[in-house]
Design a protein around this nucleic acid. Sequence first.
RNA 1: GCCGCGUUGGUCAAGGGGUUAAGACGCCUCCCUUUCACGGAGGAAUCACGGGUUCGAAUCCCGUACGUGGUACCA
Length: 508
Amino acid sequence: MEKVRVRFAPSPTGGLHVGGVRTALFNYLFARKHKGDFILRIEDTDQTRYVEGAEQYIFDCLKWCGISPDESPENPGEYGPYRQSERKHLYRKYAEDLVRKGHAYYAFDTPEEIEAMREKLKSEGKGNQQYGYAVRHTMRNSLTLSAEETEALLKINFPHVIRIKMEPNELVVFEDVIRGRIEMDTSSVDDKVLLKADGMPTYHLAVVVDDYLMKISHVLRGEEWLPSAPVHIQLWKYLGWGHQMPKWAHLPLILKPDGNGKLSKRDGERLGFPVFAMHWTDPRTRETVKGFREFGFLPEAFLNLLALLGWNSGTEQEIFSLEELTEQFSLERVHSSGAKFDFEKAKWFNHEWIKRTPASGLLPLVTEIYRERGIENTEAEKMAFVIDLIKDRCTLLPDFWDQGYYFFQRPGSIDVTPIVSKWNEKKDLFFNELIRTLEVMDFWNSANLEHGFKEIAAVNQLKPGELMLPLRIMLVGGKFGPGVFDIAAVLGREETIERIRQGLAELP
RNA sequence: GCCGCGUUGGUCAAGGGGUUAAGACGCCUCCCUUUCACGGAGGAAUCACGGGUUCGAAUCCCGUACGUGGUACCA
Protein backbone atom coordinates (compact mmCIF):
# COMPACT_ATOMS: atom_id res chain seq x y z
CA MET A 1 0.00 0.00 0.00
CA GLU A 2 1.13 3.51 -0.77
CA LYS A 3 2.38 5.65 2.05
CA VAL A 4 -0.25 7.28 4.21
CA ARG A 5 -0.13 11.05 3.92
CA VAL A 6 -2.87 13.15 5.46
CA ARG A 7 -3.27 16.84 5.89
CA PHE A 8 -5.00 19.27 8.20
CA ALA A 9 -5.89 22.26 6.07
CA PRO A 10 -7.32 25.10 8.12
CA SER A 11 -8.10 28.54 6.92
CA PRO A 12 -6.34 31.16 9.05
CA THR A 13 -9.34 33.33 9.77
CA GLY A 14 -9.48 33.32 13.57
CA GLY A 15 -9.27 31.09 16.59
CA LEU A 16 -8.91 27.34 16.18
CA HIS A 17 -11.98 25.76 17.67
CA VAL A 18 -12.70 22.30 18.99
CA GLY A 19 -13.97 21.01 15.66
CA GLY A 20 -10.77 22.07 13.96
CA VAL A 21 -8.54 20.60 16.61
CA ARG A 22 -10.43 17.35 16.49
CA THR A 23 -10.00 17.17 12.72
CA ALA A 24 -6.30 17.81 13.24
CA LEU A 25 -6.16 15.14 15.95
CA PHE A 26 -7.87 12.49 13.86
CA ASN A 27 -5.51 13.23 11.00
CA TYR A 28 -2.56 13.04 13.37
CA LEU A 29 -3.72 9.74 14.89
CA PHE A 30 -4.39 8.20 11.53
CA ALA A 31 -0.98 9.22 10.25
CA ARG A 32 0.85 7.93 13.31
CA LYS A 33 -1.09 4.71 13.38
CA HIS A 34 -0.11 3.95 9.80
CA LYS A 35 3.42 5.30 10.09
CA GLY A 36 2.52 8.02 7.65
CA ASP A 37 2.95 11.77 7.40
CA PHE A 38 0.84 14.45 8.99
CA ILE A 39 0.88 17.67 7.02
CA LEU A 40 -0.32 21.14 7.87
CA ARG A 41 -1.36 23.19 4.87
CA ILE A 42 -2.61 26.72 5.24
CA GLU A 43 -5.61 27.43 3.03
CA ASP A 44 -5.39 31.16 2.68
CA THR A 45 -6.83 31.64 -0.77
CA ASP A 46 -9.35 34.20 0.39
CA GLN A 47 -7.37 37.37 0.73
CA THR A 48 -10.35 39.30 1.97
CA ARG A 49 -10.43 37.14 5.05
CA TYR A 50 -6.81 37.49 5.99
CA VAL A 51 -6.43 37.78 9.75
CA GLU A 52 -3.19 38.89 11.27
CA GLY A 53 -1.69 36.31 13.59
CA ALA A 54 -4.19 33.58 12.83
CA GLU A 55 -1.63 31.37 11.15
CA GLN A 56 0.89 31.57 13.98
CA TYR A 57 -1.97 30.84 16.33
CA ILE A 58 -2.67 27.57 14.51
CA PHE A 59 0.97 26.51 14.85
CA ASP A 60 0.90 27.37 18.54
CA CYS A 61 -2.30 25.48 19.22
CA LEU A 62 -1.04 22.32 17.61
CA LYS A 63 2.16 22.66 19.55
CA TRP A 64 0.33 23.10 22.83
CA CYS A 65 -1.78 20.04 22.09
CA GLY A 66 1.28 18.02 21.24
CA ILE A 67 0.28 17.11 17.70
CA SER A 68 2.79 18.99 15.63
CA PRO A 69 2.87 18.28 11.92
CA ASP A 70 5.68 16.56 10.06
CA GLU A 71 5.47 19.09 7.26
CA SER A 72 4.19 22.63 7.54
CA PRO A 73 5.02 26.20 6.55
CA GLU A 74 7.25 26.35 9.62
CA ASN A 75 8.88 23.05 8.92
CA PRO A 76 8.69 22.43 5.18
CA GLY A 77 9.13 19.03 3.60
CA GLU A 78 9.65 18.31 -0.07
CA TYR A 79 6.13 19.23 -1.19
CA GLY A 80 6.16 22.93 -0.37
CA PRO A 81 5.22 25.62 -0.22
CA TYR A 82 2.62 24.80 2.39
CA ARG A 83 0.70 28.03 2.13
CA GLN A 84 -1.73 28.24 -0.76
CA SER A 85 -1.11 31.93 -1.20
CA GLU A 86 2.47 31.03 -2.04
CA ARG A 87 1.30 28.42 -4.53
CA LYS A 88 -0.85 30.86 -6.46
CA HIS A 89 1.14 30.49 -9.66
CA LEU A 90 0.47 26.77 -9.78
CA TYR A 91 -3.25 26.74 -10.12
CA ARG A 92 -4.05 28.70 -13.25
CA LYS A 93 -2.54 26.20 -15.62
CA TYR A 94 -4.70 23.39 -14.25
CA ALA A 95 -7.81 25.51 -14.62
CA GLU A 96 -6.89 26.38 -18.20
CA ASP A 97 -6.10 22.77 -18.89
CA LEU A 98 -9.66 21.97 -17.87
CA VAL A 99 -10.98 24.67 -20.20
CA ARG A 100 -9.05 23.09 -23.05
CA LYS A 101 -10.48 19.69 -22.27
CA GLY A 102 -13.99 21.13 -22.20
CA HIS A 103 -14.49 20.57 -18.49
CA ALA A 104 -14.39 24.22 -17.57
CA TYR A 105 -15.08 27.60 -19.11
CA TYR A 106 -14.41 31.30 -18.74
CA ALA A 107 -17.22 33.33 -17.24
CA PHE A 108 -17.41 37.11 -17.51
CA ASP A 109 -20.57 37.75 -15.57
CA THR A 110 -20.52 40.56 -13.06
CA PRO A 111 -21.79 39.91 -9.55
CA GLU A 112 -24.83 41.99 -10.43
CA GLU A 113 -25.63 39.83 -13.42
CA ILE A 114 -25.39 36.70 -11.35
CA GLU A 115 -27.57 38.22 -8.69
CA ALA A 116 -30.16 39.15 -11.32
CA MET A 117 -30.14 35.61 -12.63
CA ARG A 118 -30.81 34.26 -9.14
CA GLU A 119 -33.62 36.73 -8.57
CA LYS A 120 -35.20 35.75 -11.82
CA LEU A 121 -35.07 32.04 -11.01
CA LYS A 122 -36.44 32.72 -7.59
CA SER A 123 -39.36 34.70 -8.92
CA GLU A 124 -40.11 31.87 -11.30
CA GLY A 125 -40.33 29.60 -8.29
CA LYS A 126 -37.28 27.58 -9.15
CA GLY A 127 -35.91 25.76 -6.11
CA ASN A 128 -32.46 25.58 -7.57
CA GLN A 129 -30.90 28.98 -8.20
CA GLN A 130 -27.41 27.77 -8.93
CA TYR A 131 -25.15 28.82 -11.75
CA GLY A 132 -25.19 25.44 -13.41
CA TYR A 133 -26.15 23.45 -16.45
CA ALA A 134 -29.67 24.82 -16.48
CA VAL A 135 -28.66 28.45 -16.83
CA ARG A 136 -25.10 28.60 -18.08
CA HIS A 137 -26.26 28.98 -21.66
CA THR A 138 -28.03 32.18 -20.71
CA MET A 139 -24.98 33.76 -19.12
CA ARG A 140 -21.98 35.63 -20.40
CA ASN A 141 -19.27 33.01 -20.71
CA SER A 142 -17.07 31.22 -23.20
CA LEU A 143 -19.86 28.76 -23.82
CA THR A 144 -22.22 31.43 -25.12
CA LEU A 145 -19.67 33.80 -26.60
CA SER A 146 -17.83 33.12 -29.80
CA ALA A 147 -14.20 32.12 -29.60
CA GLU A 148 -13.23 35.53 -30.94
CA GLU A 149 -15.29 37.40 -28.38
CA THR A 150 -13.85 35.32 -25.59
CA GLU A 151 -10.37 35.83 -26.89
CA ALA A 152 -10.92 39.56 -27.06
CA LEU A 153 -12.23 39.80 -23.53
CA LEU A 154 -9.33 37.75 -22.24
CA LYS A 155 -6.90 39.94 -24.14
CA ILE A 156 -8.11 43.13 -22.47
CA ASN A 157 -8.08 41.34 -19.15
CA PHE A 158 -11.77 41.66 -18.64
CA PRO A 159 -12.53 40.42 -15.12
CA HIS A 160 -13.37 36.77 -15.35
CA VAL A 161 -13.45 33.52 -13.47
CA ILE A 162 -13.05 29.94 -14.57
CA ARG A 163 -15.92 27.65 -13.72
CA ILE A 164 -16.10 23.89 -13.78
CA LYS A 165 -18.60 22.56 -16.30
CA MET A 166 -20.55 19.96 -14.38
CA GLU A 167 -22.21 17.47 -16.69
CA PRO A 168 -25.75 16.89 -15.47
CA ASN A 169 -27.42 13.56 -14.77
CA GLU A 170 -24.32 11.70 -13.85
CA LEU A 171 -24.18 9.67 -10.70
CA VAL A 172 -21.06 10.29 -8.67
CA VAL A 173 -20.50 7.29 -6.45
CA PHE A 174 -17.79 7.02 -3.88
CA GLU A 175 -16.94 5.09 -0.79
CA ASP A 176 -16.63 7.11 2.38
CA VAL A 177 -14.52 5.28 4.94
CA ILE A 178 -16.87 6.36 7.71
CA ARG A 179 -20.23 6.45 5.95
CA GLY A 180 -19.99 3.79 3.30
CA ARG A 181 -21.33 4.21 -0.20
CA ILE A 182 -22.48 7.68 -1.10
CA GLU A 183 -24.22 8.66 -4.31
CA MET A 184 -24.92 12.11 -5.64
CA ASP A 185 -26.44 13.37 -8.81
CA THR A 186 -24.24 15.89 -10.58
CA SER A 187 -27.35 17.83 -11.52
CA SER A 188 -27.61 19.04 -7.97
CA VAL A 189 -24.20 20.66 -7.94
CA ASP A 190 -23.46 23.95 -9.60
CA ASP A 191 -20.63 25.12 -11.83
CA LYS A 192 -18.33 26.06 -9.01
CA VAL A 193 -15.83 28.80 -9.56
CA LEU A 194 -12.38 27.25 -9.81
CA LEU A 195 -10.27 30.33 -10.35
CA LYS A 196 -11.38 33.66 -8.98
CA ALA A 197 -11.13 37.00 -10.71
CA ASP A 198 -8.13 37.90 -8.57
CA GLY A 199 -6.28 34.91 -9.93
CA MET A 200 -6.52 32.93 -6.74
CA PRO A 201 -8.02 29.48 -6.86
CA THR A 202 -11.08 28.70 -4.82
CA TYR A 203 -10.93 26.00 -2.22
CA HIS A 204 -12.28 23.47 -4.68
CA LEU A 205 -9.49 23.78 -7.19
CA ALA A 206 -6.75 24.31 -4.65
CA VAL A 207 -7.67 21.36 -2.52
CA VAL A 208 -7.62 18.97 -5.43
CA VAL A 209 -4.44 20.28 -6.99
CA ASP A 210 -2.61 20.39 -3.68
CA ASP A 211 -3.79 17.02 -2.49
CA TYR A 212 -2.57 15.62 -5.78
CA LEU A 213 0.75 17.41 -5.74
CA MET A 214 1.33 16.62 -2.08
CA LYS A 215 0.45 12.96 -2.62
CA ILE A 216 -2.30 12.95 -0.04
CA SER A 217 -3.61 9.42 0.45
CA HIS A 218 -6.63 10.07 2.69
CA VAL A 219 -8.76 13.14 3.11
CA LEU A 220 -10.20 13.35 6.61
CA ARG A 221 -12.31 16.45 6.92
CA GLY A 222 -15.53 17.70 8.47
CA GLU A 223 -18.93 16.65 7.27
CA GLU A 224 -19.62 20.16 6.02
CA TRP A 225 -17.54 19.19 2.99
CA LEU A 226 -19.68 16.25 2.00
CA PRO A 227 -21.94 18.20 -0.37
CA SER A 228 -18.96 19.44 -2.38
CA ALA A 229 -17.27 16.06 -2.57
CA PRO A 230 -18.74 15.37 -6.02
CA VAL A 231 -17.09 18.53 -7.34
CA HIS A 232 -13.77 17.37 -6.02
CA ILE A 233 -14.19 13.87 -7.34
CA GLN A 234 -15.12 15.13 -10.81
CA LEU A 235 -12.12 17.40 -10.70
CA TRP A 236 -9.83 14.50 -9.90
CA LYS A 237 -11.21 12.69 -12.89
CA TYR A 238 -11.29 15.66 -15.26
CA LEU A 239 -7.71 16.49 -14.39
CA GLY A 240 -6.80 12.93 -15.31
CA TRP A 241 -5.76 11.87 -11.83
CA GLY A 242 -8.68 9.58 -11.06
CA HIS A 243 -6.50 6.57 -10.40
CA GLN A 244 -4.65 8.46 -7.64
CA MET A 245 -7.66 9.85 -5.90
CA PRO A 246 -7.38 9.79 -2.09
CA LYS A 247 -9.78 7.87 0.10
CA TRP A 248 -12.50 10.03 1.62
CA ALA A 249 -13.62 10.21 5.21
CA HIS A 250 -16.07 12.83 6.38
CA LEU A 251 -16.00 13.37 10.13
CA PRO A 252 -19.15 14.05 12.14
CA LEU A 253 -19.81 17.57 13.30
CA ILE A 254 -19.48 18.82 16.85
CA LEU A 255 -22.76 20.46 17.73
CA LYS A 256 -24.00 22.99 20.25
CA PRO A 257 -24.98 21.51 23.63
CA ASP A 258 -28.49 22.86 23.31
CA GLY A 259 -29.12 21.75 19.78
CA ASN A 260 -29.40 23.81 16.62
CA GLY A 261 -26.22 23.73 14.73
CA LYS A 262 -22.49 23.53 14.70
CA LEU A 263 -20.66 24.63 17.80
CA SER A 264 -19.46 28.18 17.36
CA LYS A 265 -17.47 30.79 19.20
CA ARG A 266 -20.68 32.52 20.22
CA ASP A 267 -21.91 29.41 22.01
CA GLY A 268 -18.92 29.49 24.30
CA GLU A 269 -19.60 33.07 25.26
CA ARG A 270 -23.27 32.38 25.69
CA LEU A 271 -22.87 29.23 27.74
CA GLY A 272 -19.67 30.04 29.59
CA PHE A 273 -17.18 27.53 28.24
CA PRO A 274 -14.25 27.66 25.85
CA VAL A 275 -14.50 26.62 22.24
CA PHE A 276 -10.99 27.60 21.15
CA ALA A 277 -7.92 25.62 22.09
CA MET A 278 -6.10 28.67 23.41
CA HIS A 279 -7.00 32.29 24.01
CA TRP A 280 -7.51 34.26 20.86
CA THR A 281 -7.36 38.00 20.45
CA ASP A 282 -9.08 39.39 17.42
CA PRO A 283 -6.59 41.86 15.96
CA ARG A 284 -9.36 44.12 14.72
CA THR A 285 -11.57 44.38 17.77
CA ARG A 286 -8.87 43.58 20.37
CA GLU A 287 -11.47 41.31 21.88
CA THR A 288 -10.00 38.27 23.63
CA VAL A 289 -11.67 34.94 24.25
CA LYS A 290 -10.26 32.40 26.65
CA GLY A 291 -9.45 28.95 25.37
CA PHE A 292 -9.29 25.53 26.95
CA ARG A 293 -5.75 26.23 28.06
CA GLU A 294 -6.76 29.38 29.93
CA PHE A 295 -9.72 27.66 31.54
CA GLY A 296 -7.19 25.32 33.06
CA PHE A 297 -7.33 22.25 30.87
CA LEU A 298 -4.36 19.97 30.49
CA PRO A 299 -3.54 19.35 26.82
CA GLU A 300 -3.73 15.61 27.44
CA ALA A 301 -7.26 15.98 28.74
CA PHE A 302 -8.27 18.26 25.90
CA LEU A 303 -7.09 15.77 23.30
CA ASN A 304 -8.68 12.91 25.22
CA LEU A 305 -12.09 14.52 25.34
CA LEU A 306 -11.90 15.53 21.71
CA ALA A 307 -10.99 12.02 20.65
CA LEU A 308 -14.06 10.62 22.36
CA LEU A 309 -16.30 13.05 20.51
CA GLY A 310 -17.15 10.93 17.52
CA TRP A 311 -14.87 8.01 18.17
CA ASN A 312 -14.67 5.27 20.75
CA SER A 313 -12.53 2.21 21.15
CA GLY A 314 -15.38 -0.24 21.62
CA THR A 315 -14.04 -1.06 25.08
CA GLU A 316 -14.92 0.60 28.36
CA GLN A 317 -11.74 2.61 28.44
CA GLU A 318 -12.29 6.34 28.36
CA ILE A 319 -9.01 7.77 29.53
CA PHE A 320 -6.41 7.55 26.80
CA SER A 321 -2.96 8.99 26.44
CA LEU A 322 -1.93 10.21 23.00
CA GLU A 323 0.09 7.00 22.60
CA GLU A 324 -2.91 4.85 23.48
CA LEU A 325 -5.10 6.79 21.11
CA THR A 326 -2.56 6.31 18.36
CA GLU A 327 -2.54 2.59 18.95
CA GLN A 328 -6.27 2.12 19.11
CA PHE A 329 -7.62 4.69 16.69
CA SER A 330 -9.41 3.54 13.58
CA LEU A 331 -11.61 5.35 11.13
CA GLU A 332 -14.00 2.42 11.11
CA ARG A 333 -14.93 3.24 14.67
CA VAL A 334 -15.66 6.88 13.96
CA HIS A 335 -19.36 7.70 14.16
CA SER A 336 -21.31 9.13 11.31
CA SER A 337 -23.64 11.20 13.45
CA GLY A 338 -22.89 14.54 15.04
CA ALA A 339 -22.10 14.84 18.75
CA LYS A 340 -23.28 17.57 21.06
CA PHE A 341 -20.52 19.08 23.10
CA ASP A 342 -20.93 18.54 26.85
CA PHE A 343 -18.79 20.79 29.01
CA GLU A 344 -19.53 18.80 32.18
CA LYS A 345 -18.04 15.71 30.65
CA ALA A 346 -15.13 17.76 29.36
CA LYS A 347 -14.36 18.86 32.90
CA TRP A 348 -14.56 15.28 34.09
CA PHE A 349 -11.83 14.33 31.64
CA ASN A 350 -9.64 17.09 32.98
CA HIS A 351 -10.26 16.06 36.57
CA GLU A 352 -9.27 12.52 35.71
CA TRP A 353 -6.08 13.74 34.09
CA ILE A 354 -5.23 15.96 37.03
CA LYS A 355 -5.69 13.02 39.38
CA ARG A 356 -3.41 10.88 37.26
CA THR A 357 -0.71 13.43 36.62
CA PRO A 358 2.10 13.34 39.18
CA ALA A 359 2.74 16.48 41.19
CA SER A 360 5.98 17.05 39.32
CA GLY A 361 4.04 17.41 36.09
CA LEU A 362 1.53 19.81 37.58
CA LEU A 363 4.11 21.85 39.46
CA PRO A 364 5.10 24.37 36.75
CA LEU A 365 1.48 24.98 35.79
CA VAL A 366 0.30 25.50 39.34
CA THR A 367 3.31 27.63 40.22
CA GLU A 368 2.45 29.87 37.31
CA ILE A 369 -1.11 30.27 38.55
CA TYR A 370 0.17 31.35 41.95
CA ARG A 371 2.60 33.76 40.36
CA GLU A 372 -0.21 35.35 38.38
CA ARG A 373 -1.99 35.96 41.66
CA GLY A 374 1.00 37.54 43.27
CA ILE A 375 2.50 34.66 45.19
CA GLU A 376 6.10 34.13 44.16
CA ASN A 377 7.55 32.29 47.12
CA THR A 378 6.12 28.91 46.27
CA GLU A 379 8.94 26.67 47.30
CA ALA A 380 8.87 23.69 44.93
CA GLU A 381 9.00 20.94 47.50
CA LYS A 382 6.20 22.42 49.54
CA MET A 383 4.12 23.12 46.44
CA ALA A 384 4.51 19.57 45.20
CA PHE A 385 3.37 18.31 48.57
CA VAL A 386 0.37 20.63 48.53
CA ILE A 387 -0.53 19.56 45.01
CA ASP A 388 -0.71 15.93 46.07
CA LEU A 389 -2.79 16.92 49.05
CA ILE A 390 -5.43 18.79 47.06
CA LYS A 391 -5.48 17.50 43.51
CA ASP A 392 -8.44 15.17 44.08
CA ARG A 393 -10.47 18.31 44.61
CA CYS A 394 -9.27 20.14 41.51
CA THR A 395 -11.17 19.88 38.27
CA LEU A 396 -9.61 22.81 36.47
CA LEU A 397 -6.13 24.17 37.10
CA PRO A 398 -7.30 27.40 38.78
CA ASP A 399 -8.93 25.22 41.43
CA PHE A 400 -5.43 24.70 42.76
CA TRP A 401 -5.58 28.28 43.90
CA ASP A 402 -8.96 28.09 45.61
CA GLN A 403 -8.05 24.80 47.22
CA GLY A 404 -4.55 25.68 48.26
CA TYR A 405 -3.81 29.39 48.52
CA TYR A 406 -4.14 29.30 52.29
CA PHE A 407 -1.00 27.22 52.50
CA PHE A 408 0.92 30.22 51.28
CA GLN A 409 -1.06 33.14 52.57
CA ARG A 410 -3.43 33.71 55.47
CA PRO A 411 -7.08 33.65 54.42
CA GLY A 412 -8.30 37.19 53.97
CA SER A 413 -11.31 36.49 56.10
CA ILE A 414 -12.65 33.51 57.94
CA ASP A 415 -16.22 32.40 57.95
CA VAL A 416 -17.17 31.49 61.50
CA THR A 417 -20.90 31.13 60.89
CA PRO A 418 -20.88 27.31 60.87
CA ILE A 419 -19.37 27.22 64.39
CA VAL A 420 -20.29 30.40 66.15
CA SER A 421 -23.68 29.23 67.39
CA LYS A 422 -22.17 26.18 69.09
CA TRP A 423 -19.20 28.05 70.48
CA ASN A 424 -18.72 28.04 74.24
CA GLU A 425 -16.22 28.68 76.95
CA LYS A 426 -15.11 25.05 77.13
CA LYS A 427 -14.07 25.17 73.53
CA ASP A 428 -12.28 28.42 74.06
CA LEU A 429 -10.35 26.87 76.93
CA PHE A 430 -9.56 23.85 74.79
CA PHE A 431 -7.96 25.91 72.05
CA ASN A 432 -5.90 27.86 74.54
CA GLU A 433 -4.63 24.63 75.96
CA LEU A 434 -4.01 23.37 72.44
CA ILE A 435 -1.82 26.37 71.75
CA ARG A 436 0.29 25.67 74.81
CA THR A 437 0.68 22.05 73.78
CA LEU A 438 1.61 22.93 70.21
CA GLU A 439 4.22 25.37 71.41
CA VAL A 440 6.21 22.56 72.97
CA MET A 441 5.31 19.63 70.71
CA ASP A 442 8.36 17.59 69.75
CA PHE A 443 7.74 16.29 66.28
CA TRP A 444 5.60 18.52 64.13
CA ASN A 445 3.74 16.13 61.90
CA SER A 446 0.21 15.18 61.06
CA ALA A 447 0.02 12.07 63.24
CA ASN A 448 1.43 13.77 66.33
CA LEU A 449 -0.83 16.73 65.82
CA GLU A 450 -3.87 14.51 65.67
CA HIS A 451 -2.77 12.52 68.68
CA GLY A 452 -2.10 15.57 70.82
CA PHE A 453 -5.35 17.20 69.74
CA LYS A 454 -7.44 14.20 70.66
CA GLU A 455 -5.69 13.74 73.95
CA ILE A 456 -6.53 17.25 75.11
CA ALA A 457 -10.09 16.79 73.89
CA ALA A 458 -10.43 13.61 75.92
CA VAL A 459 -9.03 15.25 79.05
CA ASN A 460 -11.57 18.06 78.67
CA GLN A 461 -14.34 15.61 77.90
CA LEU A 462 -15.01 17.13 74.50
CA LYS A 463 -15.73 15.27 71.29
CA PRO A 464 -12.92 15.79 68.76
CA GLY A 465 -15.48 16.12 66.02
CA GLU A 466 -16.88 19.31 67.51
CA LEU A 467 -13.42 20.78 67.65
CA MET A 468 -12.06 19.82 64.27
CA LEU A 469 -14.37 22.06 62.28
CA PRO A 470 -13.45 25.13 64.35
CA LEU A 471 -9.77 24.31 63.87
CA ARG A 472 -10.29 23.92 60.15
CA ILE A 473 -12.03 27.24 59.87
CA MET A 474 -9.31 28.99 61.83
CA LEU A 475 -6.66 27.53 59.56
CA VAL A 476 -8.24 27.79 56.10
CA GLY A 477 -11.14 30.17 56.53
CA GLY A 478 -13.98 27.85 55.58
CA LYS A 479 -15.41 24.35 55.33
CA PHE A 480 -13.09 22.90 52.75
CA GLY A 481 -9.67 21.42 52.19
CA PRO A 482 -7.86 18.20 52.99
CA GLY A 483 -7.39 16.65 56.43
CA VAL A 484 -7.05 19.37 59.02
CA PHE A 485 -3.94 17.88 60.66
CA ASP A 486 -2.27 17.58 57.27
CA ILE A 487 -2.92 21.26 56.80
CA ALA A 488 -1.44 22.17 60.16
CA ALA A 489 1.57 19.98 59.43
CA VAL A 490 2.29 21.92 56.25
CA LEU A 491 1.60 25.30 57.83
CA GLY A 492 4.15 24.75 60.56
CA ARG A 493 4.13 25.53 64.24
CA GLU A 494 4.24 29.31 64.26
CA GLU A 495 1.71 29.85 61.55
CA THR A 496 -0.71 27.29 62.95
CA ILE A 497 -0.59 28.84 66.39
CA GLU A 498 -0.98 32.33 65.01
CA ARG A 499 -4.03 31.37 62.98
CA ILE A 500 -5.64 29.74 66.01
CA ARG A 501 -5.02 32.93 68.00
CA GLN A 502 -6.56 35.07 65.29
CA GLY A 503 -9.49 32.69 64.99
CA LEU A 504 -10.11 32.84 68.69
CA ALA A 505 -10.18 36.61 68.48
CA GLU A 506 -13.12 36.42 66.10
CA LEU A 507 -15.12 34.13 68.33
CA PRO A 508 -17.14 35.38 71.33
C1' G B 1 -37.24 25.38 -1.63
C1' C B 2 -33.62 21.80 -3.53
C1' C B 3 -29.63 18.20 -2.50
C1' G B 4 -26.78 15.29 1.07
C1' C B 5 -25.92 13.14 5.88
C1' G B 6 -27.87 11.52 10.39
C1' U B 7 -31.45 9.68 14.65
C1' U B 8 -29.99 4.04 21.19
C1' G B 9 -31.46 7.64 28.47
C1' G B 10 -30.65 15.00 29.39
C1' U B 11 -25.28 14.21 27.14
C1' C B 12 -21.18 10.85 25.21
C1' A B 13 -22.07 5.95 23.70
C1' A B 14 -21.64 -0.19 23.27
C1' G B 15 -24.56 -3.48 20.81
C1' G B 16 -25.88 -4.38 13.98
C1' G B 17 -31.70 -10.38 13.68
C1' G B 18 -32.98 -13.80 19.78
C1' U B 19 -29.13 -9.45 25.42
C1' U B 20 -32.39 -8.53 32.08
C1' A B 21 -30.21 -3.05 25.80
C1' A B 22 -23.19 -2.44 28.41
C1' G B 23 -20.38 1.57 30.28
C1' A B 24 -19.29 6.88 31.22
C1' C B 25 -20.86 12.15 32.40
C1' G B 26 -24.66 14.62 35.02
C1' C B 27 -28.67 13.91 38.77
C1' C B 28 -30.54 11.26 43.39
C1' U B 29 -29.77 7.81 47.81
C1' C B 30 -26.50 5.32 50.97
C1' C B 31 -21.41 3.83 52.88
C1' C B 32 -16.45 5.74 53.92
C1' U B 33 -14.70 10.46 55.69
C1' U B 34 -16.38 14.38 62.52
C1' U B 35 -15.22 19.75 56.19
C1' C B 36 -15.08 19.32 50.96
C1' A B 37 -13.43 15.89 47.74
C1' C B 38 -11.55 10.94 46.33
C1' G B 39 -13.25 5.94 46.66
C1' G B 40 -17.30 2.27 47.11
C1' A B 41 -22.61 0.43 46.73
C1' G B 42 -27.30 1.44 44.70
C1' G B 43 -31.31 4.31 41.93
C1' A B 44 -34.24 7.07 38.24
C1' A B 45 -33.79 7.55 32.88
C1' U B 46 -33.26 5.09 26.29
C1' C B 47 -33.83 2.01 20.94
C1' A B 48 -38.05 9.04 16.99
C1' C B 49 -42.79 7.38 14.58
C1' G B 50 -45.52 4.30 10.97
C1' G B 51 -45.42 0.37 7.75
C1' G B 52 -43.12 -3.95 5.90
C1' U B 53 -39.46 -8.59 5.74
C1' U B 54 -38.99 -12.46 9.58
C1' C B 55 -40.97 -17.63 13.97
C1' G B 56 -38.46 -13.26 16.08
C1' A B 57 -36.42 -6.17 14.53
C1' A B 58 -32.95 -1.40 18.52
C1' U B 59 -30.54 -4.28 14.59
C1' C B 60 -32.65 -5.33 7.53
C1' C B 61 -36.05 -2.47 3.81
C1' C B 62 -39.53 1.63 2.69
C1' G B 63 -41.96 5.97 4.15
C1' U B 64 -42.77 10.05 7.69
C1' A B 65 -41.04 13.30 11.33
C1' C B 66 -37.16 15.70 13.42
C1' G B 67 -32.06 17.26 13.54
C1' U B 68 -27.95 18.79 10.82
C1' G B 69 -24.81 20.34 6.63
C1' G B 70 -24.52 22.40 1.80
C1' U B 71 -26.83 25.34 -1.75
C1' A B 72 -20.77 32.14 -2.42
C1' C B 73 -15.48 34.80 -6.98
C1' C B 74 -15.85 31.50 2.15
C1' A B 75 -13.25 27.75 3.64
